[in-house]
Write a protein that binds this DNA or RNA. Sequence first.
RNA 1: GGGCCAAUAGCUCAGUCAGGUUGAGCGCUCGGCUGAUAACCGGGAGGUCCGCGGUUCAAAUCCGCGUUGGCCCA
Length: 1050
Amino acid sequence: MEQIDDQYRPADVESTVERYWDEHDAYEAATEAHADDPPFFFVDGPPYTSGQMHLGTAWNKTLKDAVIRHKRMTGHRVTDRPGYDMHGLPIEVKVEEELGFESKRDIEAYGMEPFIEECLRFAEENREAMDEDFQSIGVWMDWEDPYKTVSPEYMEAAWWAFSKVAENGLVEQGKRSISQCPRCETGLANNEVEYEHVDDPSIYVKFPLAEREGSLVIWTTTPWTIPANTFVAVDGDLTYQAVRAERDGDEEVLYIAAECVEDVLKEGRYDDYTVEDEYTGEEMVGWAYDHPLADRVAEYPDFEGAGQVYTAEYVEADRTGLVHSAPGHGEEDFHRGRDLGLEIFCPVEPNGEFTEAAGPYAGTFVRDANEAIIADLEADGHMLASGTVNHSYGHCWRCDTGVIQLVTDQWFISITDVKEDLLANMETSEWYPSWARDNRFRDFIEDAPDWNVSRQRYWGIPIPIWVPEDAEPGALDDEMIVIGSREELAERVEEEIDPGTIDLHRPSVDGLTIVEDGTTYRRVEDVFDVWLDSSVATWGTLGYPGADEAFDELWPADLIIEAHDQTRGWFWSQLGMGTAAVGEVPYEEVLMHGFANDSEGRKMSKSVGNIVTPQEAIDRVGRDPLRTYLLSHDQQGVDLAFEWEGLGEIQGKLNILWNVFRFPLEYMALDGYDPAAATLEDGELEVVDRWVLSRLQSVEADVADAWDDYRVHDAVNTVLSFITKDVSRFYVKAVRDRMWEEADSASKRGAYATLSTVLAETIRLLAPIAPYLTERMYQRFDGGATTVHALSYPEPDPSLRDAELERDIGVLRDVEEAAANARQQAGRKLRWPVPRVIIETDDPAVADAVENLTALIADRVNAREVVVTDVFDELVERARPVMAAIGPAFGGEAQEVMTAVQGATREAIEGGEVRVNGEPIELDEDMVEYVAEPPEGVSGTDFDGGTVYVDASLTDEIESEGYARDVIRRIQEMRKELDLDVEARIRVGVEIDDDRVAGFIEEHADLIAGEVRADAWLEAPDAAEGTDSLIERWDVEDVTVRLGVEPVAE
RNA sequence: GGGCCAAUAGCUCAGUCAGGUUGAGCGCUCGGCUGAUAACCGGGAGGUCCGCGGUUCAAAUCCGCGUUGGCCCA
């Protein structure tokens, strides 16, 4: 790794380093170096193995990697086991697609065992591809040993945790209204339901009252739930009206909330109406009505209490103000129905088809039956109005089928019973940013329903519940046996099994039976909701409960890092599981980052075609620039709008670092200086050295603070800005001359030592962010350790900090900037010295700073003399005509007066020297204003603490040096063109067609020869001979100069 | 439909918590420097601080109502 390219080429750097890491086992070296440090338990949120790395997951893993590397460098033994989430419906659906399946029946026909093998194969293949993806962006985690949710050890962690939940009395079986995907034939968790806008029926139905004239009017978008209608809900406090409505000469009485009457009658195209009566909802309770499909369906809710009006909280004065309620379907209806002690009637199968109870609709898919039901309602005269509405409706997150609400028997973790604990535990973890916890997360917890953990599927962790065979489902939690480990399983089941080798997947556990007290128990067929898998990751990562050593030392996790979608996902599932199982939250700190969107801030999606892949970014700019780019934006809660320009910008900044790094290498090599052995005690530190070292300490302190708060982007940007602004822009410029010096000197060694220190520490500061680049630089610069990532992170040394000096140089830089501006006004380039620079200030701190740094300022602004003063007394007051006064007084002559006044000195005006056409003119005081301006040849520019004046007047001596410097510059340019080594000697011939300028050059012959390493002067440019000589004609301040450069043979 | 977050120069972002003349980098443009040279530095142009209302002597900042985008929930 010795040869350093002139140019920063990320691809070359990264492939070189990648090879180096492989050959030297660098990752192992880094972890071993910190093997005895105090522990830091990081837990990787497992990505789902159904796809490849995208920009969002690349960001996620890059952030994790940076934090892990930083933690390691700051003296921690970091748990860096990556994880993969490999079970679940998404994979089943993909495999079903591959095999051309359409329903669960196809799976049963194919065979559960081969199907599950296909799922495992699919998940493993994806996992391997993702392994490679993550390693391709330099993520150093323990890729030899990732945790997989499909391993027996991991699945056991889920069984163990669930058995603890059961011990705590929080596992319940019950009928619940759930979102069911009729295609996948399984219940879905709330977060598996995605909402899309669709057109659905919008019908107003009349339910004829049994004991009085008229009908209740309800509105619904799901005609297929009408067969299950059990009651009609009203708001007890709302006013309802009985209206006699007329349409086409027919009259009927309708009951509608008062606020809704107009709208409903308009929907029904009624011609007129009169209000006959008013009731509160409370007064209507108990009114009976006839089920509108009573004559059509085989069964309908006609049991005790059905077919009546009840109050319910979910009623609003919207549509009709009366709500068709089917506890067999809707969740709210279900809860209210159960409170009312009503039976739960649901004539729909898990696959969405009506049962025999639904009579003519039996065997029809519910949504397909809508049409027939609408037609029947119309035929029977129950339809008030029928149309369509566009609204958002839930769909299965995987197969995009519209979900249906059904009541089925499911297993739950009753987290609503421990809500107080959840809220209390939530407070014990620290979130970055904190608002995510205190607003979003808290809201979610407060509203969270019980967790339905059962899925009627195949590819998942089997639920370890055994229930008495032939028992009626409903409340089996009283009789269930929950198994918590493979060991316990082997002990309790009748069959002979080896706990060391048993695969816990279906179907191998399905046939196992337990016989206790004469009762035979069989496993429930369900598998866990896949969110339960990852909820036990803190245990699974440590191999608990199979092994408990690491658990005893490390649990709970010190930190987890995920994007904001996990507030409702993994952040939540872990809190829920931790609280239900062991009464604790499994993590102490949460770093929540955002999503990677496109440059417009829009979500990247296939359909929009705005996807940028990490591979594309790596191909175009490289891994380190991509990582640095991702980490240079806010990492706390906000999204990233990805755009290529920003990526290029970052590459540019890293290129500056590269240039700063290789700048001293050649000089050091010439002098045999070893940067790895640099000490600040060797050599003499000048003021700029002390300054940049002080800045380095300040940067290190700021960076440490930033990491402490997980403000990673602040850490990144602080280092980058130090490199570009302080080191490149200021320090390198200041030490150039000292590096170019041929002779050894204490000053040069001081500069070497300073730059070596700054670079060595800056490399380490940036190592967690840009691991390849920094490794490359470290190995070239030092290489004492196997890898830079095994070293410790730089810490500020207070003895090198000098706040006063940092302030003073701040002033100097302001002054320098203002001086550059003033020079530009005066048209005097920096290469030409100026006799004086005057700094006018009334701020003693600024004056002090300038006085402390006079020599340095003089050097940087190229001035013979630097003066600081509180009043620059050479300013000349110049007149400005006030035309409002001059115009009326002089009429036609006003223009000429104006010209005469403009720019005259106060002396001239007051001495009556202003003349127009030779005649002195009388000027009143109000006709002239005065502005203080610098004298001839001086220009001034304001800065924060005052004004900088540059006296740019010329003398022979200054002109002489100016021309000499210009000639030096041209010769250096030619050396460069000849590609000469830094130390190569030359001979130079000069020809100038201006005798005066030729004289100036002659005066400075020794200076020029020294600067350009010339051994001798040639007679003329043309005397430069040989193929490797160069003769060029230059224009210097309008004077033609011909130069010949001839390398001296060695 | 609800909750949370974001919107500031052509682009990416600071500044918002603690109200007091909107800043930086990139890009553009003009100039300068230079044995870091496809690098580096300076000047200039460029702003309805998303909109509307309110509080206040004073609002990018605080409050309310919207718009657009993102995440989550229904």
